[in-house]
Amino acid sequence: MTDRLTTLRKTIENVLPNVEGVLALRIGPGGITAPHLFSKEHSEELDKLALWPKEPVPDTLKIILRAHPDAKLAIVCRGCEERGIVEMFKHSQLNLDNLTLIGLQCEQDEAEFCRCAKPFTVHSKLTVGEPIEGVPDPLTAKIEAMSQPEKQAFWKQEFEHCIKCYGCRNICPQCFCNICALEDETWVETGRLPMPNPSMYHMVRAMHMTAKCVACRECEETCPADIPMAVHFRLIARDVREMFNYEPGASMDQKPPQLLVLEEGEYERSGLPH
């Protein structure tokens, strides 16, 4: 059995002639891994192809597509990144006809690092590595088990560390609105740190990630204050599954519940009075 890096390299070499570029990770100057657009003109760069640490590849795709909406590209994506791409597609952020997905299956230690329930791709036709089972998320379980005052104290302390750099929003593959509620002073006041509790910034963001967050944890990884905000998004994702029967990124054609009309049976599951 060949290792994932070798197989991935071969797969990319096969795909390169048919596309304008392949988005994957490369070990750059200073030994730092970052997203890179590999091209057939510089295929020797594949010597520096990398797998880990995970870096925000879909976010880079978003930036490239903004400047070149019709680019014909391929992207190496893990399970979460593939889900992100599917949601971007559903919200008209990209054209899947122009995008070749190369699914990279995560290994046990990677899945554990991400506390990931679905460390595998399901849509990519080309795949590298063997899919493994999801792993539990001890952090979310721990926070969920807290009492109400404990939760309150925990999140207050976490949100107090936020410096409002907007990094978590900027890195998120699912944050693409041109006008962002988090930049509206009606909701998030400027010039106050720590921000008043409860944090409007984080609560509004959590509401806006509903039925969109694909649990890639890019936001947590980028946060300079180490705030475990994806815990909120994961708990809400579970509710969205129960209430709306929707899982972001799971299927290509299921309608996202942000379409604000109730579907059959949704009201019954909402917990509101009958």
Binding site: P198, M203, M207, V231, H232, I236, D239, M243, E266, G271
Partner: peptide, 20 residues
């Protein structure tokens, strides 16, 4: 329908943040 869809989610979020 919007109310019925988003407010239950907001109630959950309040719960997870430690707000009754």
């Amino acid at each position: 329908h919007r109310t019925a869809k988003r407010m239950p989610v907001l109630k959950k979020l309040m719960e997870y943040t430690g707000i009754e």
